[in-house]
Simulated scan of single mutants.
Amino acid sequence: MDFAFDEDQEELRRTVRAFLEATAPEAETRRTMETEAGYDQALWRRMGSELGLQGLAIPEEHGGAGAGPVEVGLVMEEMGRAMLCAPYLASAVQATTALLHSDDEEARTELLPALAAGEQVATLALTEDSARWNREGVTLTARAGADGGWLLDGHKTFVLDGAQADVVLTVARATDGIGIFLVAGDAPGLTRTTLPTLDLTRRQARLEYRDVPARRLRTRGDGWELVEVVLRHSAVALAAEQVGVASRALEMAVEYAKVRHQFGRAIGSFQAVKHLLADSLMEVESARAAAYAALLSAQNGEGDLPMAASLAKSLCSDASVKVTQDNIQVHGGIGFTWEHPAHLYFKRAKTSQLLLGDSAYHRELLAQAIGV
């Protein structure tokens, strides 16, 4: 498999990195994560209007660039490096993937242009109090309304950017199976509460539904099949972000090991630190290989995507946590302080490890996929 990116893709990476270095430094991340929205809405619109990042995977007829998962993954990797506060995973990956793979051209025409331009944010509401990412975890109910629409009752939790989203794609159980329902963020009967989380740079919310009006997204078959597609593409994109988080954490550790001196020597010259950094490098490069392979599988529509996605998610999750922990270890006491960014990377890594299912869950999915 060829892991080399073409010149356009490398230019995309360079452009995004330069943009984020200029607009989203650490100080801006710390400011943004304390705001009510949890992200800079003006910057979000610039990302759409100037760079077209939200519309990368959206076809040109709907206002996007017509690119694919590889380009989205490269952007996610750079956003992980920058620790960007933005609803990109929720809106540009999860919600957009659901719309693109649905059988609902009307919904695509209505929603995708605004999502591509950064004018609106959408998200996917799946998990509930059981925190299960499978079909059995869906208990929120949908019943037919008098006007031909649907009414939803129940709750969702751990919804990415759920309190800020303009549109919530809600997974619910109807009499004929699982469906995905379009809910306006300000719909009557919908209560949204921001959750306290370890990672302040990525917002999550609890949503309560009381006879909430909704429109059912048309799908080619059972709605759960579409949910599985979304989860796989989301896992691959998140794995790419985890590579970015781990890569930047390793760079921080190496930079500090070169300038921090003890006993008249740079700490990077000590064997214990050398071994720790060498192990971190192996973790990063192994994770990068798994993430890039999964991105190519998603891009090419290959049948091994379920295996590639779970392999990448489990490996990149563990690598990201390990490398960000090692970064704190290399920094010593200063790495534990609020003022140092090392803890931001560790917290992002730890919450991402659990998001979309933890490493053990994805190893189980991988074992099932290969028939073990």
Rank of each mutant, 00 (worst) to 15 (best):
F19M: 00
E36H: 03
Y39G: 11
I58L: 14
E61S: 06
G66R: 14
P69F: 05
V72D: 01
C85K: 05
C85Y: 15
A86C: 03
L89W: 06
L111C: 10
P113I: 09
A114N: 04
L124W: 06
S130P: 01
V138I: 12
T139M: 14
A146L: 12
L151A: 14
L152N: 13
R173C: 11
A174Y: 02
P188L: 15
L190W: 11
L198K: 12
L200N: 13
R203P: 10
R216M: 06
T219R: 07
S234W: 01
S234Y: 00
A235K: 11
G244C: 09
Y256G: 04
V259C: 12
I267G: 06
S269W: 04
K274I: 05
A293M: 04
A293G: 08
S297Q: 11
N300E: 14
G301N: 09
E302W: 15
L311G: 01
S314E: 05
L315G: 11
V321K: 02
D326Q: 12
I328S: 13
I328L: 04
I334G: 15
P341G: 08
H343N: 14
H343Y: 06
Y345E: 09
L354T: 10
L356A: 06
G357C: 03
R363E: 07
R363S: 11
L365I: 09
G371F: 02
